[in-house]
């Protein structure tokens, strides 16, 4: 069983999103990037699969910036192989284009399963796993919280719906899965191990041309107007607690003894 995990880096929300307010364009070069947290979940679920049933895990990223550390980290965590798709790409590359490049690569390979984060904070033009599935014309399920091997190249999934409903799904591979959460929290890769891996293992580089396909001509980003912003309660803990009690009283929410 060969499992591909698609990884991408997204702007670090802890730091500031750098926006040119006038043009509404993001200053991609001025932001710091982190692996998308849902992709971390997808990788973890793939590694659990590997431990359970000996799947071979390949982590793949499109070189939209420095993705090497992300790939070495995947190796340090237990991925068998990592691939970087290179080309004339940068951090502004759209999901659609990344999905094109990724699906072209996956199609040539012999993967039974593609896992990726169900979403990312920046997917304006669609989520990677869904787009890749569409381009490959493979069945696809999103919001998956568990992936297991069944018999006869079958894969078992748990898909979640709102209200806490869960479906158990069986699908014959190949399949694309959008992972919401792994069964266990993602494991840690120590800096030393990542460094050691970086010294001893090479990233396979595959070059690709610039993908065509629909791209939106002119996306403008704006900061949301703080329309319905909360009224901030100032003061120390005691002052705040007093004020909240007052608010509750005003709203008739104090429990009568």
């Amino acid at each position: 069983m060969r499992v591909a995990v698609l990884l991408k880096a997204v702007p670090d929300l802890v730091e500031e999103l750098v926006l040119d307010e006038e043009s509404g364009s993001l200053q991609y070069d001025e932001m710091s990037y982190v692996p998308s947290e849902w992709d971390d979940q997808a990788l973890e679920e793939a590694l659990i699969l590997k431990e359970e049933s000996g799947a071979q895990v390949t982590a793949i990223a499109v070189s939209t910036g420095d993705v090497d550390t992300m790939l070495f980290t995947a190796l340090a965590k237990g991925a068998d192989h990592v691939v970087k798709i290179t080309g004339d790409f940068d951090a502004s590359m759209s999901n659609w284009q990344q999905a094109r490049v990724l699906s072209d690569y996956v199609r040539e390979q012999d993967f039974d399963m593609v896992l990726s984060g169900v979403q990312a904070i920046d997917d304006v033009d669609g989520q990677i796993p869904g787009l890749v599935a569409g381009f490959l014309n493979w069945p696809h399920a999103s919001v998956v919280t568990e992936v297991r091997m069944g018999g006869d190249s079958k894969v078992l999934l748990r898909q979640e719906y709102s209200g806490g409903l869960v479906a158990e799904i069986e699908v014959e591979s190949p399949v694309v899965i959008g992972v919401q959460a792994a069964r266990k929290p993602p494991r840690y890769a120590s800096v030393a191990k990542v460094r050691q891996v970086a010294k001893s293992v090479a990233i396979e580089e595959v070059s690709a041309g610039a993908p065509a396909g629909p791209a939106f001509a002119d996306i403008q980003f704006v900061r949301p107007v703080a329309a319905g912003r909360a009224e901030m309660i100032e003061g120390d803990v005691d002052a705040v607690a007093d004020r909240i009690v007052q608010i509750l009283a005003d709203h008739n929410l104090l429990r009568r003894a």
Binding site: V14, V34, K77, Y188
Partner: peptide, 29 residues
Amino acid sequence: LEDGEIDKSAQKVLVGWDRQGNSFGQPVR
């Protein structure tokens, strides 16, 4: 740690140090 085994809250702190240099998950600035 090399086997990825660590308390999850502590793991977040390690990641925070690596990314932001502090244990509070707060921006550098």
